[in-house]
Every structure is written in C-alpha cells, then in structure tokens.
Amino acid sequence: MKFVVWPNEIDGRISRKYGRIVRKEVAVDSPTPLEIRDAAEILGMKVVEFYPDKLNPRLSGLDENLRTRGMMRIESPYPKGKSLRMIAEKIRELRARKRKSSRKRRKK
C-alpha cells in the first residue's frame, strides 16, 4: 500500500491536533525527512516520491521552530500506522547508534 508521510506524523513535539499519529512514547523529536527516508529504506519500504521542502498545511498555525518540512510517498507492505511506528523506532535506534559511535571517538 502507498501513503504519504509527513515528519510531523512521528514528531514527539507536535500534538495530535497538528497531525501526530504515533503514540508519544514511540515518537521522536524533530525527525528530518532524510532520517525518515533512510529508516524506511532500511526497513524494506520503497520511497516512491521525496520532497524535502514541502510543508504540511496543518502546520500553518504553529511556530516556525515546530514546523518540520518534507513529504514523501512510501510504498509498504504494512498499513500506515504500523509503518510509522516502525520508522520512528528505527530512527530512535539509528540516533542511539550514532550517539554511541560519537562518544567512542571522543574518548580516544
């Protein structure tokens, strides 16, 4: 199934009123379109279209620092809700791995 993914759908700083779909415990703060694309590809989902500068119309009433740009159309074997949870968890895992490797470099 194909669906559109906006970064605010997995952003923990955004309320459900402004489009967050996943639970707050699963959501990540300030996900970038590139992180979402990378996580989706790692999970075996296909990114059909990618627009890093598009802004979700729902975010027009928010402060500029809460607006996350980007839109992508993803093809996944899973429904949208499950796919978004998987992407958010993968981003969390990738960020933790990145932090861990940067700490190791500083210690040496």
Rank of each mutant, 00 (worst) to 15 (best):
I10T: 09
P31D: 06
P79C: 09
K2H: 10
V26N: 13
F3Q: 07
E64L: 08
L55R: 13
R69C: 05
A39I: 01
V47R: 01
I42T: 15
I14H: 03
G19C: 04
G81C: 03
I36L: 06
I87W: 00
L34Y: 12
I42F: 13
P79N: 12
I14Q: 02
K90C: 08
K104A: 15
L59F: 05
L84T: 01
N65L: 11
P31A: 10
K46P: 01
P57D: 07
E9Q: 15
L66I: 07
M72P: 02
I87E: 00
K90L: 07
E93A: 06
D63Q: 11
P79M: 13
S101F: 12
L84V: 01
A39C: 10
K104D: 11
R103T: 10
M86Q: 04
L84A: 01
S83C: 09
T68L: 15
P52A: 09
P33R: 04
E75Q: 05
G61I: 06
W6T: 03
F50G: 07
R23C: 13
I91D: 00
T32L: 10
D29C: 12
D63H: 11
E9F: 05
V47E: 00
S15R: 08
L55D: 05
L94P: 02
Y78Q: 11
R106V: 15
N65Q: 11
R20I: 10
V5M: 06
K54G: 07
L59M: 14
L59Q: 08
E64I: 08
V48L: 10
V48M: 07
L62Y: 04
Y18C: 05
L94T: 00
M71S: 10
R73C: 10
E25N: 14
Y18S: 08
S15K: 04
L62A: 09
S60M: 09
L55K: 10
L94W: 00
E93H: 05
K17W: 09
G44N: 03
R99L: 13
P33F: 07
E41M: 12
E75P: 01
D11Y: 02
V47A: 01
V5D: 00
M1T: 12
